[in-house]
Structure formats: C-alpha cells, structure tokens
Design a protein around this nucleic acid. Structure first.
Length: 476
RNA sequence: GGCCCGGUCGCCUAGUGGACUAGGGCGUCUCCCUUUCAAGGAGAAGGUCACGGGUUCGAAUCCCGUCCGGGCUACCA
C-alpha cells in the first residue's frame, strides 16, 4: 500500500512556522516513501475563518520547497479538499453513528451548558457535559431533531480504555471514564475537528498521521469514532511542539512566527528547512547541515524527539548563513534581487556576490554592503573620514598619495591595487592606510576588501571619491 | 481541579546498564588568519544528566516516589 500523508491546517490566519515544521515532516515521509502528500483545509470554524490564509499556506509552503499532489487547487481523486465543501459527508456519518448507537442528539442550549459548567466549577467538579440528552428516547430525539436546533455528541462508554502505540511516544492509554461526550456535529451543521479528521483521514486513504503533540489528548475521541465505523486506525506520530523561550507554544509575543516574516527578513529557505527539521529531530550523527534531499533520505520518525523544542532565532540565522555560502553565486544573485532597489544593475550585483556571501546571514544585509557602488550619497562630516587617532591633515596627505597610485595603477584590478597599496603603506608607515582609503571610497568602515571595492567601483569613480574626501578634509 | 506528555551545559541535542574524566552544534570568550567586517582555523568557559530513594560489582541509562514545565480540558483547531 502506498503511503498517503496529509497536512491539514485551519485557515485562521497566516501560516505559522510551527505548522511548516509539522508539514515538513509529512513531506519528508511522503517523499522518502514515494508517497502522496495531501493538503486538506480544515475550515470547520466559520468564526475564525480568514480568507487570506489559503494564499499564505500556498506561498509559505512553496517558498520552503514543500509540494503536494492533492489539494484544493490541485484537485485529486478525493476532492473536494476543503472541509466546508464536504458538509453532507460529515452529516451523513454523524447520522450513521446515531443509528449505530455511538452518538446521540443533544438539544442543550449554549446557555444551559454554560450554567452547567459554572455550577460544576462552583462544586469543584470536573466540568464536562452531564449527558442529559443521552437519556432521551432515540425516536423522540430523531423527531425533535427535525425541528429543534441540536448538536450530535459522541456516546463515550462508561468503562474500559483505549490506547495507541504512538510512533513518537510509544504506548499511550486513556481510561474512557474521564472522557467528555464530545460534540461531533455543531448546530450549524458543520462538523467539529474530531469528526471531520477521522472521516476525511479514512475516506482519503491516509496511511500515516503525523501532527503536533497538542492533538494527543484528543486521540481517544478519534479512536472511538474509528471503532464505531469499524475503520482501521492509521499509525500516528505526535511530534513535539515548537516552543518559545519561556517554554510555551511559540507565538507572536516570542518574535516572528509567520512564515512570511522569515521570508521578509531575508532568511534563506534552505536554511530555514535545515533548522526546522532539527527542531524535534536529529539524525543520530554529528552532522547537521542538510539539504531537503538529504533530509528526505535521512529523516526517521523513530528519531523524532519527545520533548518540545525551543525556537532559537540565533541558530536559525547561523543555518541561513551556512546556506548563503553554499548556494551557487548565480542563484544567490537571483535571491538577492527582491531585496535591492530595482534600478541597481544586475551585472554589478552579480560581481559582488563572491565578496558578500561570506558576510551575510540574511538577504537583507546585502544592501548596506554594496550600496556604495550604486549611490554617491556619501557622508559630508570630515570626522567620518578619519581613521581612529588620525588627524585631518596627515590623512589628507596620505589620501593624496593613494589617489595618485589609483589613478595610475595598471592593470586596474584588485591584485595590482593591492600591490600599490602595500607599497604605499610601507612608504608612509601607515597601518591604517586601508581604513582611510575605505572611508573615502565607500563611506563606511565595514565592508568587504578595499582592493576589491576599488576594483568594482572603477578607476574614475574611485579617484573622484578620493578627491572628494581630500576636499572635505581640507575644509576641516 | 482532571486527563495526557515531557525534564542531559543559556539554546538544539548525542547517549538505550560498563570505552562517559557526559560528546557535537548554536551562542559567549581567547588566540591565529586578516591593515575593516565576516568567513575559516585552534582553544576556553559552561552540565552534581530535575530531585530523593532503590536494583546492580557498575545508572544519564532500569524501578518507585517527589518536584518542575507544558499540552488538552469549547457547538476552536
């Protein structure tokens, strides 16, 4: 039987980075087994529905390199893949469960439910449905259901227990006596998550369920539904949560959590995927830099951690930097373009790549590094042209000698410029000759090699800037 | 409160009874390289393996208890 796994997000907002991690695991498992990955939209909560979410899911997942075969836009043999378009299916199954005695109609109003819970809480009891409607005669209930608002609830047995062999956590067991009679079908005709996942996972032929650990407590409810229909229960693996620094579920207050934020910050998707895979999984060796293809070959559910992983922005940056250096220059150049002014010449940008790729962790850092090549908007304050502990007069004199050397150097290339500059440094005894030159030519005290900077800028512009620097220092 | 899941350096983690004087990576610090910043190289600091009892010749690893943290506890997912 071929592997079929799914990613089932709720369209309630922008794609969360923790969701990407969970989906990445599904993707890796599908790919390594030549299986099928399915995207299913679980929009059963009309209140929280966010129409922008679907685009966010598609954009974010495609950006990190995750692709699937069946989904809302792709179609497939089990379409539709949006739960709100499958309502009759869930309603039919809910009715079937009632007929089998595994569920019942509930006519309790939200108000009564709220009062009931308040009373239970006041008595320090467990707050759960008191099963009032479970005692209504089924025929009467069916009749009332034709005209009264109602929900359908799971009829949880009073005794016994259910268990799974979780792929991550091992044996987990729940006594049924502690379970609530979960609502399966809401009064608006929409299913709850619990009914919808089980029905869809079965109907869509899902063979393995990998999802976040927050779902572990609801497994017994799902087991009861599988059991009622006599459906086989697919193997499940509940993967650890992605946490913030305070050990709580990663959320906005911890920092960036939207996938699009990382993209906007210039994080390389290769680095993100590499880092993400390692939050909750490790290969059993000391290697840790992996491409998507390597992850596909190596990832194993058995190696997934039990404990939650704290999000580490520093480590993510490091991985992004690692991939910055690994990507081919042409590829990196293309990645950079969206982060630079459109009028900047691609050819010039491309020429800087070998010099800046080792100095960036995020694509957003490129702009400052190469701006001096595209803008003549340099500082005007004399102090900005002085190396530490150097006076204006001496700096001006040294710069004049540099200017002469640059004006005549042949060939005009980094190696020859280096030779000239080193000769001048020896002659003048100036250890910070390069810094003085850098300040005059680029306007900043950090950046890649001065010789390369001058070579890239060109003889004419370099000389112009040296003259300009000398002029500013004369005024001072 | 109840149910469930966790607990190895600040963070991610290796480790599944003896080679553990607990290893690697991120971060921090030092040095080398470099007339900037990085990258690269070499080192350092950092852990009584949550705690307490057992079992055993021997425990991070097995058992029991305790503590701490988290998740769930909705007609949310």
């Amino acid at each position: 039987m071929s592997v079929r796994v799914r990613f089932a997000p709720s369209p309630t907002g922008e794609l969360h980075i923790g969701s990407v991690r969970t989906n990445l695991y599904n993707h890796l498992f599908a790919r390594q087994n030549n299986g099928t990955l399915i995207l299913r939209i679980e929009d059963t909560d009309q209140e929280r529905y966010d129409p922008r979410a679907l685009a966010s899911i598609y954009d974010g997942l495609h950006w990190v390199g995750i692709h699937w075969q069946e989904g809302p836009r792709e179609g497939g043999p089990h379409a539709p893949y949006v739960q709100s378009e499958r309502l009759p299916l869930y309603q039919r199954h809910a009715i079937e469960m009632i007929a089998m005695g595994a569920a019942y109609h509930c006519f309790c109003s939200p108000e009564r439910l709220a009062q009931m819970r308040a009373a239970q809480a006041a008595r320090k009891e467990i707050t759960r449905y008191d099963r009032l409607c479970r005692r209504i005669d089924p025929k009467e209930a069916a009749d009332r259901a034709t005209r009264e608002p109602h929900t359908v609830r799971l009829k949880v047995p009073d005794e016994g227990s259910v268990a799974i062999e979780d792929l991550v956590h091992g044996h987990v067991e729940w006594p049924l006596a502690t379970l609530d009679d979960q609502v399966l079908l809401k009064s608006d005709g929409f299913p709850t998550y619990h009914l919808a996942v089980v029905v869809d996972d079965h109907l869509m032929g899902i063979t393995h369920i990998f999802r976040g650990e927050e779902w572990l407590p609801s497994v017994p409810k799902h087991l009861l539904i599988f059991r009622a229909f006599g459906w086989p229960v697919p193997p499940m693996g509940h993967v650890p949560l992605v946490l913030g620094q305070d050990s709580k579920k990663l959320s906005k207050r911890h920092g960036a959590t939207r996938t699009s934020e990382f993209r906007e910050q210039g994080v390389l998707p290769e680095g993100l995927v590499n880092y993400l895979a390692l939050v909750g999984w490790q290969p059993g060796t000391e290697e840790e830099v992996f491409s998507m293809e390597e992850l596909i070959a190596r990832w194993r559910i058995e190696q997934v951690q039990k404990a939650g992983g704290k999000w580490d922005y520093e480590r993510l940056r490091w991985f992004s930097g690692v991939w910055m250096r690994r990507l081919p220059d042409d590829v990196l150049c293309d990645r950079l373009l969206p982060f630079l002014p459109p009028e900047w010449d691609r050819g010039v940008i491309r020429a800087t790549i070998p010099h800046i790729k080792e100095r960036m962790e995020m694509l957003t850092q490129a702009k400052d590094l190469i701006a001096f090549l595209f803008s003549d908007d340099l500082p005007t304050e004399p102090a900005r042209y002085l190396p530490k502990k150097r006076a204006a007069t001496e700096t001006r004199d040294v710069l004049a000698r540099v200017r002469a050397a640059i004006a005549g150097v042949e060939p005009f290339a980094a190696a020859a410029i280096k030779t000239e500059m080193e000769r001048l440094a020896a002659e003048t005894g100036w250890k910070d000759l390069n810094m003085a030159t850098r300040l005059a030519v680029t306007g900043t005290n950090v950046g890649f090699g001065v010789y390369e900077s001058i070579a890239l800028l060109g003889r004419e512009r370099s000389v112009e800037r040296l003259d300009r620097g000398i002029g500013i220092l004369k005024i001072a």
